[in-house]
Design a protein around this nucleic acid. Sequence first.
DNA 1: GTACGGTAG
DNA 2: AGTCCTACCGTAC
Length: 860
Amino acid sequence: MKKVANSSCNDGVLLRMGLNDNKAGMQGLDKEKINKIIMEATKGSKFYENELKKDQQVNQRIEKMMQLKEKITAQQLLKAQLQVDKLVIELEQSRNLNSTIVHIDMDAFYAAVEMRDNPELKDKPIAVGSMSMLSTSNYHARRFGVRAAMPGFIAKRLCPHLTIVPLNFEKYTKVSKEVREVLAEYDPNFMPMGLDEAYLNITDHLEERLNWPEDRRRFFFNTESTTGIDSMNMSTNFNKGEVSSSPVLFEDSTSPMDDNLQQTDLSEGNSVVFGTSAEEVVKEIRFRIEQKTQLTASAGIAPNTMLAKMCSDRNKPNGQYRISPERLAVLDFLKDLPIRKVPGIGKVTEKMLKALGIVTCSELYQQRALLSLLFSEVSWRNFLDISLGLGSTHLEKDGERKSMSTERTFSEINTAEDQYSLCRELCRDLAQDLQKEGLKGRTVTLKLKNVNFEVKTRASTVLSSVSTEEEIFTVAKDLLGTEIDSVAPHPLRIRLMGVRVSGFLTEEEKKYQQKSITSFLKSGKETGFLRFQPEKSNQDYFTKNSEAPFRGSFFDQKRAARKLNSENISPNESRGKQLFHDDKSSANLVEETKEVTNLQNSNVCKIFTCPVCFEKQSSKNLEELNKHIDECLNGMCVEDAVELFKNDSSRENIPNFVPQFKNEYVDKCQKNKTDQLSGTDQSASVSDSSANGGTEKFGQIIPDKSPGKQQPSSLSDIARNMCMKQCLFPKRVSQDHFDKTEHTEGTSSSCFFETKEDSVLVCPVCNSEQKTTDLVSFNRHVDVCLNKGLIQELTEKDDFPAKTYNMENSNRVFSGGLSKGQQCTNPSQGAKRSGLTASESVSKKAKSSNSKHTIKMFFK
DNA sequence: GTACGGTAG
DNA sequence: AGTCCTACCGTAC
């Protein structure tokens, strides 16, 4: 369904939209007439103009390809031939003919259901859909060129008597369920593809069936006829191989059952016994479907899904076809098969291949060397599989959904006001759908189609996943705003808007989200996060850890020590170090403790300790980690900033010290401690701030502007605060930067303050001024203070806390800069992100190794 | 990560 | 008067 007519002609838009396989009939139109009418109806429309434009783009692609082809030398081709043929041999060796795959396809499904339920439609040409778009048509209507994916108003011109029935999905779903009940008996793991199609693997069934007594293969005709259709007559025809009594659908079709009927036992008058072959099984399935629903299905039987699908098309409607599981049978089937019949090859690919003289699958095989030079690896390997008749032999349950979207077409909307409210509506709908499935995603995509049918998509990925109307709209409205601005002062004239959410959290991340909240409440139970089970194949993770139980990171222990006022931290335990390691191939972030230093597995949830809240966090990637830190930083709000002094010499580069922060910090420290002990959920304040009108952008909470709250008065205030925070709590870093930075342990190299001489920092613990040239030594002092001398001796050793605060490491994980996708479009965000004024923030590091995006962002 | 296009149902 | 909606994948940057 919903497929435009196959086109064997590749020239022009007209024929693509027309009909090419019109069967001769008393009524109906011939191909030329149909195309003429379509052309008349379509010519001059914006739609048509856009079709022409797209067509030209395809032509350009073809042109490029042909130029490329011209440059190919005989030698290159020969070399390619050898390489490809080597692969062919491998592929042949792996050819698997042992499965029996069935593809079931309900005939003109929606239309058939409507006809079944309304006898008045029986003899009429009908289509299901609306004036603007048809989903499918019955075979009667198809003779007039009325097809799926054709607008109703054009169909009406082709066939003025056409009855257009509105869609009734509930009904189709119900019928589909009935069909599926039958299918499940042959393969409990069958794979539905939409409402009207399914793949089955009947290999096991066939084997079992051999031992079945005849009675188990006997089925009775349904003698109750609740509708106007004479089901008895249908069934009789079914067995005799006569034309089906569904004349409306199949008036001019040949009998579906006139071949291979030998095995079907016509014994009793009201029952049939089916044989044990694959054909018989599929006949049985189709028989049962028809008895149950009064609808017919077509089917294909083959050794893999691709072939099965092509087979089901062969004797449509109400027919079936089988490719026997032999290599030659497969190749014979493909020999003259037009490539357009292959699932996955659409009109564009067809046209491109036609330009290379490839129309049939055997030609596809003949040109394999050339194709390997003109197309991407994925593409030409796919072509090769097709031409060899290779496909998947098992039915994979389709995995987790990857995106969810909603979009709407309407008559022109051109005022920003309407567009925003429409956008909100879409977000509301989408949020509802998302919540139904309990999904949250990080990427929001806005889709727009202007009145010229040009489509645009604009996406934005935020750090904390979204699912509510408000959250989605916050992102979507920005994207929309940018588009409106981009055409200003002209109005944005659109005919479609859509919103999509993707980048869903994995199950583990969902659990993590909940855990991270409860963990705050639990105030840091050591084992909390270890319940984050790594996925399978991570046995060694636990084996290693079972010998030396995870003790928590350095910070964690400190916090625990402080809280419990314990004096029993052994040096060994305290030496657990926190460092970050990036496994580029898996793009995962690893916090390695002594115990898990060699951990390489990519699927493991890594544990780290948040330098802000000191909670252990489990995370699979950098974004997640940074998100948490963002939330913590914001949760503590700007008052938590640490003071920073700068000597007069460089005062112009560093914000002035703001005295009030000093005492506030200390107070806040106390408060945090109490909060944690009393179970106050700090993260709650983060979400609250957005609920209270603070807006969340790019995963960061923009400070609540509500009156009564102490606000940093200006951008520079925010920047200063962030700058201060950055001293104590190294900020985030982009993955890019992270990847590019070398991972040299222990070398405390550049940090923001290293480049400036004689910084004076105030220790947040003892409140004394510390003159320092680098953060490492300052951090060391803080550590010492925190531990009240307990661990002091350790600080003398080289490998200790330096790593904890090591800017080399911290830089990667926390320090300034954005990844490409997080570029700020608005200067205040940019400032907030970077945490520094422009001139300040372009440190040596940023200049040299962070991408230009960062720099650009700084100066926005 | 973003933008766009191809494909299918 | 007038040409859908949802989802996935691949490619290029």
